[in-house]
């Protein structure tokens, strides 16, 4: 249908490529040169003397530890989501009654609760529970706030399962538990991978809850490490940007190998 190439669109797309690519280039170039080289050559020049010292220095400044904390928070959030959401969606789709409809409405309305709005009561609750400055205190609210989108996504996927299949299971006298594990879980794999990716991204990139619910080194996650680095040593741009690169590295690797799953997980963010 399109016979000649669309030059105007091509030009526009190149402009956008520069806008996206240039900052990423500056970031990468800055992290590979020493601080003095960066400030004398300016942000746009390619490093003349390559060095990885910015990265090694970040690790000795605690980023290895923040990294581990973030892995822990992410794994725990994903585990909570995987434990809670599949049974919930199964009940919403299969049990008939007003109560489950009400439950679904609750999660729909939950989409509208901005996490920025509840930081004060969350701080109050977590402090009273003795979980302030504790990773558990970050994990619980982070998981709770990724539930609505995950419930929505997985419920949508489970609705697609043909009801004849349920009846076939029932013919065999299967209990709800057996139906769940042998029919529902295997048939909602795509939805499960989406909610895993979505909740993992929420946890990995989460900033607000760690910011207001933790304070000291032992419980610091990587986004908070970045923020503190910026407020305390913001002048060390190569070191700071190296930390930014480190923080996005795991997600970037997933992007290279599982782009489809990641993009679908990101679309889940849209529900928020």
């Amino acid at each position: 249908m399109k016979r000649r190439p669309n030059y105007l669109a091509g030009l526009g797309s190149l402009v956008w490529l520069v806008l996206i690519g240039l900052p990423l280039y500056v970031m990468l170039a800055a992290t590979l040169q020493s601080r003095s080289d960066y400030s004398s050559n300016g942000p746009l020049s390619w490093p003349k003397h390559f060095t990885l010292s910015n990265y090694t220095q970040d690790f000795s400044n605690g980023f290895g530890h923040y990294f581990l904390n973030t892995v822990l928070v992410t794994a725990a959030v994903v585990a909570i989501v995987l434990l809670l959401i599949p049974p919930l969606s199964y009940a919403i789709v299969r049990s008939q009654g007003r109560t489950t409809t009400g439950v679904f409405r609750l999660f729909l309305l939950g989409l509208a609760i901005p996490s920025q709005a509840v930081i004060v009561p969350m701080f109050y609750l977590i402090t009273k529970a003795g979980l302030y400055d504790n990773l558990i205190g970050v994990i619980l609210p982070t998981a709770a706030f990724s539930l609505p989108v995950c419930a929505l996504v997985l419920t949508g996927v489970m609705r697609e399962i043909n009801s004849e299949l349920y009846e076939a299971m029932a013919m065999d006298g299967a209990s709800p538990a057996r139906t769940f594990f042998q029919l529902v879980v295997p048939l909602s794999k795509s939805g499960l991978s989406t909610i895993v990716v979505f909740s993992a991204l929420q946890a990995w990139n989460g900033f607000l809850f760690p910011l207001v619910l933790t304070q000291n080194e032992p419980s610091k996650v990587i986004t908070l490490g970045l923020f503190n680095f910026q407020t305390e040593h913001g002048i060390d741009v190569p070191g700071l940007l190296a930390a930014v690169v480190l923080s996005m590295l795991p997600i970037f690797i997933v992007y290279l190998f599982a782009r489809r799953a990641l993009v679908q997980g990101l679309m889940g963010v849209g529900g928020k």
């Binding site: 434990l83 049974p87 919403i92 299969r94 049990s95």
Partner: peptide, 11 residues
């Protein structure tokens, strides 16, 4: 066999 409310309760 339909799942009961117990399935939705934890979440």
């Amino acid at each position: 066999a339909r799942p009961g409310l117990a399935w939705a309760a934890p979440a």
